[in-house]
């Protein structure tokens, strides 16, 4: 099975021409990026280039800094040192081009499904509603447009969150373990949905996940973060749509999983130094 360029796949699936896809995605460059909380170094001198339109998955144990990387990219936190550039421009000027999907859907419960999708969308009322309905149709929820989010299942809420992110036509989509709380079947459906929309719209995607199979199923490239730096950078040379049952898929998944497991869990390392000062203990007693 040969390595197929993602642009060829787009051509095969009838998506926009390769040139367009390249243009719609954003190129990312991390340059000596570091971040520390109090005494703990979360990210340590991360240098990384991500191509426009690339789908990159970041895996790693809990607390390895993978979510922090995404939050820095989303501008929710500021780096301690180093910088991030999108298409060569410093991050601050290009915030509008990226959208973030959170671990929970974070829909506003007081707005209907379609109004949630329309949140922050500029334009006239009718245009905004039309765009929001189109985005909902993309995730298969057009018929639930006027319901309250509380009436939806967890998977449906994440689909609405995906529609809300994509209605802005972002050039970069950040996914912070958005499928972690969903059941296995719903996850597989979401994988297909995300892959289809990514192929159609050509944005750059960055997925943080615990699930190695998810990373291998979706990404062009799997990154492993350990101790705040990139320990593995692996291309996934499988053709799309990927077959989870195939030997090549299983072998890749196994490789990555073994590599992740080599590293001792962070909890064990963190247990030794106590961060609780004597004064705080006195209050607890």
């Amino acid at each position: 099975m040969g390595v197929i360029d993602s642009n060829e796949i787009r051509a095969l699936t009838g998506a926009p021409a390769p040139g367009d896809a390249r243009k719609s995605g954003v190129r990312i460059r991390f340059d000596g990026l570091s971040k520390a909380y109090a005494a703990r170094q979360v990210l340590n001198d991360v240098n990384l280039d991500i191509d426009a339109g690339e789908f990159v998955a970041i895996v790693g144990r809990s607390g390895c800094g993978k979510s922090t990387l995404l939050r820095l990219l989303a501008g929710l936190e500021q780096p301690g040192a180093g910088g991030i550039a999108l298409d060569g421009e410093p991050l601050q000027q290009t915030r509008d081009e990226l959208r973030l999907m959170f671990q929970d859907a974070r829909l506003l419960p007081w707005r209907t499904v379609v109004d949630n999708v329309a949140l922050g969308l500029p334009g006239s009322r009718a245009d905004v509603r039309r765009a929001a309905l189109a985005a909902l149709a993309d995730v298969g929820l057009a018929d639930r447009a006027d319901e309250w989010p509380s009436r939806l299942s967890g998977g449906q809420r994440q689909r609405v969150a995906l529609a809300r992110a994509l209605v802005h036509r972002p050039r970069l989509l950040l996914l912070d373990e958005p499928l972690g709380a969903l059941d296995a079947l719903t996850r597989i459906e979401m994988h297909q949905l995300i892959e289809r929309l990514w192929l159609a719209q050509g944005f750059t995607a960055l997925l943080v996940t615990h699930d190695v199979a998810e990373a291998v199923a979706l990404a062009d490239r799997v990154l492993l973060i350990e101790d705040g730096s990139i320990a593995l950078d692996l291309r996934v040379p499988l053709a799309r749509p990927r077959e989870r049952g195939s030997a090549a898929f299983a072998a890749l998944e196994d490789d990555v999983l073994r590599r992740v497991l080599q590293h001792p869990p962070l909890e064990d390392q963190a247990a030794a130094p106590s961060t609780v000062s004597f004064g705080q203990w006195r209050w607890a007693a």
């Binding site: 929710l76 959170f102 974070r106 506003l108 949140l119 922050g120 809300r164 802005h168």
Partner: peptide, 16 residues
């Protein structure tokens, strides 16, 4: 607070 964070990341600020 997570909804406020979401709102900010979707470009809302001030009055909106």
């Amino acid at each position: 607070a997570s909804l406020v964070e979401m709102g900010r990341s979707y470009g809302l600020s001030g009055w909106s």
